[in-house]
Each structure stands twice: as C-alpha cells, then as structure tokens.
Nucleic acid binder design. Structure first.
Length: 400
RNA sequence: GGGCGGUUACCGAAGUAGUCAAACGGAGCUGACUGUAAAUCAGCUGCCUCUACGGCUUCGAAGGUGCAAAUCCUUCACCGCCCA
C-alpha cells in the first residue's frame, strides 16, 4: 500500500482528496492538525479529540525536549502512550523556535544554540538531535530541523537559510536512517518529511524544493510562511513551491492558518495543515462560526464571546455547529464563564474552534469528492463585520 | 434638634493647596494572535482635536479666601453612625 494515496483530484484546482497511511492510522486529507505542543491539545482530552474525528495532532520537539524530556517519554513508551493518543502524531522539529525564539538563539552550522532554556542552561539543537528526540517521541511524521527568516523577507538571508536547511536536511536523513536501521526506534513506522523554504522568492523556493526533493522524502512541509507577510504573498509562496515537488507526495503547509488561508491552500495543492489559531484564539475568546453571505454561500466569521453584547444572548455560539457547547450551552453562558475566568470557558471555546476546523476540513473533503470544490472555494471567505478602517467588530447574531 | 464621618470619572477607591483630567481595581471598548515563551499581549475609557508636553469643562451644590482649590472657609443638599 502506498504511503500516500490520492483518491481524487479536483478538476478545476490542484486540490486533492487523499489518505496518508501512518503507523497510527489513516489521515484523510485535506486535513487540519490541532496543535498539542507540549503533549496536550490545551484543555481537551485525547478521547475528545478522537470523538471529534481528529486523526493526527501536532506536537513539538523543542518543548517536549525541554520538558519532560524525550528520554522520559521514551521510557513511557513514546508520546502516543504517554498522552494516550492512539492516532497519528506529527512533530515539528524545533525549527519554528528558530523563528519564534529568535532573540534567544544563535544559528550555527552545527545546529541552533538556544539560550531560552527552562533549566537555565544553553543547549544546542542540531539536526541530528532533533531527529533523535523525535525518534524517542515516536511521532508518525517527523520533520527535519529547518532555518528560516522572519518578515520582511531578505533575499540573501533567505538564501542562506534554505542552504542551511538543505545541509541540515542531509544530516537529518543520515541520522534518521541510522536510527531506523541500527537503533531502537519506538515507532519503526515513523516517516521523516522534508521542509521547503524560500520566503517569497520564486527562485529560492524552486532551489529549496529541488534540493529537498533530491533527498527523496515521503512527504514535504512548506515552511517559512505566515510569519507576518500578506496572505496573498503566503499563497504565492505555496504556488512557487508546489510545482517543484512530486505530485503524488503529501504536502503539509506549516502554521497555516485561518479558515480562508486553508481553503485557498487546499486549492493550491496542500494536503495538511496545522495552526495555533483555533486553540489559542479560543482561549482569548475568539470563536469561529458559520456564516453565509447574501448569496447563501458557505463562509464564516469570528466573534469575541467576551463582549457585553452577548451577555443576554441565549442562542448557541454557532447554529450549524455540533460541538458540545453549541449543543448544550448559550453564548450568554459562555460569556459568563469567560467573565468569571472559569476554566470551562477555555474548554468550551477550544472544543468549539477545533470542531469548527475539523468540520471545515470535512466540508472541503466532501466538496472535492462531490465535484463542487471550485464553487465552495469561490464563495468561502471571512465575513466578520469590519468598519471603514478594516477593524473587526462582532456581529450579534448568527447569519442564516 | 445635636455630634461625628462621608459625597471623586460607568462602579469601587486613592488624592487633602501648585508636578491633577485626577493613582489603582473592577467593568467596558479597540486591536493583535498563523509549525504556541500566549487561559496572553497592547491601546483606550471627561469633552474638543488627526495628534499633542494643545484647548476646554470637572472632583455633591452655591458662594468665598488665595497668584493657584478635588484639596482651605461658609451655607445648603443627601447618605451613614451616635446622642436627644
């Protein structure tokens, strides 16, 4: 059985319906990975995630390395056993922290020296070390350690980053093969994916894609996007990378994104996604809900449930949602929970947003399967009401 | 009837002559958040002005003293406690 099967290709876009056969079950694409950085999708249980239909989650090498340590997780039987999540796990390599912790690290040829360390020590995360950690975690999809600059993009810095990434990728592959053949990996079915960098520069995206492709990875991630650049630039970067990668391999778009971003990226050939938006914004009171424009097309908008306008709103957060909160509670109640700083506020909000994202991906898959993805794509947008300056304001009622 | 205490911005509460449009909380309003240093962060909350170290109007009411008052004095109003 092929690792990645393409079940159907959309005729009017590059979208495809597929299945990734991981060592911990199938992942039906296009798919969105809820993020569980530290071995937990914040505030929800593994059982709940499974119940909602999640097939893969993303965890983080850097954070788990720092605490509780990959050695401990290895002893626990790997991350799947440790957190009792039996479906697939996708691990970021720690590459994102090269970006997000830019002020406390130093990129060197050997690896990345992090001074932001929970024990107060400075340690080097090398491409080999990242693979060793991910092997100990036993994730199903591991990523190579990569380097990428923030926004605004600078050509020379970006070129250095992709070349650094390629050199690290070669070392990561060697380490991965060494562990798979001579080591004692907790997950012998773990796959290592490459990462394409190159910011918004066509020639660099092409160069990176070709260099990474040469290493024969079973799947690819497109990285270095959604770091502050306009959405159009992010999508252009995807367009620059996709054509240089084998069509029959899965492509993951790292760190993306909003519902709009995701649907647009699916149309450009991306198969899977991950993003902190649904979980983090949930904790901050921003909820994603269904909305329809005047023509009745399927779209969405966001509301800030903490606002006073929802105090006496006794309707569900989203009439079209089947999450626990939408079936059992009202906007007014959830707003009250936020105001009272009750833990349940975070849980209900997180559950809702994850369900919104998972339901969205299901809609996308169904649309591709039934040949109306182009129509769905054309109509799908963020309908959050905005004033003349483009600032969001919260709508008070569900659009029908 | 008498004594004492109090009345500050949406609410609570500092401030007792100049550096006060007035600390701090709460509440509210805006915004941000994209491979999670994030149940977080930033700004605003008297009026005007795009902004201001800018102008204007405020600290129960009215009237005084004073170069200057939320801060001192007088009277009044209301609230609380105590004495008759």
């Amino acid at each position: 059985m092929k690792y990645f099967e393409i079940l159907k290709k959309d005729q009017k876009s590059k979208a495809r319906l597929g299945v990734i056969h991981t060592a911990h079950g199938d992942v039906h694409t296009p798919y969105f990975n809820p993020i569980g950085t530290k071995g937990t999708v914040k505030s929800v249980t593994s059982e709940e995630l499974k119940f909602w239909g999640a097939e893969m989650i993303l965890a983080n090498t850097y954070h788990l390395w720092q605490r509780p340590g990959d050695a401990l997780i290895y002893k626990a039987g790997g991350l799947h056993a440790f957190m009792n999540w039996k479906q697939a796990i996708f691990t970021d390599s720690g590459g994102y922290q090269v970006f997000s912790l830019a002020k406390m690290r130093q990129v060197m040829e050997v690896g990345v020296l992090f001074r932001f360390d929970m024990d107060g020590r400075a340690e080097i995360l090398s491409p080999e070390k990242s693979i060793q950690i991910q092997s100990n975690l036993g994730s199903d999809v591991a990523l190579i350690l990569d380097d990428f600059p923030g926004y605004p993009f600078e050509y020379e810095r970006t070129k250095q980053a992709i070349e650094q990434t390629t050199r690290w990728a070669e070392r990561a592959v060697s380490e991965y093969l060494k562990i798979m053949t001579a080591g004692d990996p907790i997950n012998p079915g773990q796959k290592l994916w490459g990462i394409v960098q190159g910011a918004s520069f066509p020639d660099l995206r092409e160069q990176s894609a070709k260099e990474i492709r040469a290493l024969d990875f079973p799947g690819y991630a497109i990285g270095g996007v959604a770091v502050g650049e306009p959405t159009e630039d992010m999508l252009k970067a995807v367009d620059m990378a996709i054509p240089h990668l084998e069509e029959d391999k899965p492509k993951h778009l790292l760190g993306v994104g909003t519902p709009y971003d995701i649907v647009q990226a699916v149309a450009r050939g991306c198969d899977s996604f991950d993003c902190v938006i649904p979980t983090r914004e949930a904790r901050h009171g921003r909820l994603y809900i269904s909305a329809r424009d005047s023509s009745g097309k399927d779209s969405y908008k966001t509301i800030d449930i903490r606002k006073a306008e929802f105090a006496e709103d006794f309707t569900p957060v989203d009439n079209e949602c089947d999450c626990y909160g939408c079936l059992n509670h009202t906007r007014g109640y959830i707003r009250h929970l936020f105001a009272a700083q009750e833990a349940l506020s975070i849980r209900l909000a997180t559950m809702h947003n994850i369900k919104y994202y998972l339901n969205l991906m299901k809609k996308v898959r169904t649309a591709i399967e039934n040949d109306y993805f182009d129509d769905f794509l054309a109509g799908f947008k963020d309908l959050t009401e905005r004033d003349s300056e483009g600032n969001a304001s919260s709508p008070s009622e569900n659009a029908l």
